[in-house]
Design a protein around this nucleic acid. Structure first.
Lengths: 111, 111
DNA sequence: TTTTATAATATCGTTAAATGATATCATTTA
DNA sequence: TAAATGATATCATTTAACGATATTATAAAA
């Protein structure tokens, strides 16, 4: 995406970060959790996954807390949690603005 | 962004399309409406704006309904409205999944 | 103790998106 | 007719997504 990196998270970024709010995980477990919680809607392949983990670690959104063989376990940081929450707020703002513009949900998807 | 074009809209895409749900507009008016409704949070510069208008017209999400001098007025199509609504649904799904994962809004932003 | 399988991570290369900067063009105003 | 303004168009750069593929560590089977 975009120029102004990290200000708004992409869907992939949001879900990956979100997964770690449950507790420490390795990459593969995160990816499985995301697929499960989203009921298959969101699927993060290895390329996206490890690219994001590297970026998040660099930004200190997550930190590595253990290495067992190849398995690297990460934990979300305060900074990462804040980023995740602020992304959630952004989603609410988008919905609010959509309502302000008068956009309505379609009938069959309502409630 | 992304490979699978148009499946999930970016924030810029969503707001530009959203603006046209209110009724026909020219690019500049759309950009001003977005800035107003989002209370300055979302600002679409000309590069982003006209790049998106061209793309949306190509995808038949909007169609040109008049040209007065340089001013080109567009109207959203049924297809465009559906795309916008389905993006809104996606936002709701993201929030639902965030709740399922246990992510809570921060106190000062609650309600 | 070598294979072989499997789990997990890492990287490459391509396509797409965002956007500042700048240019173009039509209309209005001086 | 020149200057200002409004509106649109394009370029070049940076960043993101992700299929495909490779690498590496452990576990299981031979």
């Amino acid at each position: 995406m975009p120029k102004k990196s990290m200000e708004t998270l992409t869907e992939s970024m949001f879900y990956v970060l979100l997964a770690f709010t449950r507790g420490p995980l390795c990459g593969t477990d995160a990816s499985e959790l995301i697929e499960k919680v989203s009921e298959g809607r969101v699927c993060i392949g290895p390329a996206t996954l490890y690219t994001l983990l590297a970026k998040f670690e660099k930004e200190k959104y997550i930190k590595e807390i253990s290495v067992e063989g190849r398995r690297r376990t990460y934990e979300i940081t305060e900074k990462g949690l804040k980023a995740c929450q602020s992304e959630l707020e952004r989603l609410y703002l988008c919905i609010k603005d959509a309502q302000a513009m008068g956009l309505r949900r379609t009938c069959d998807e309502e409630r």
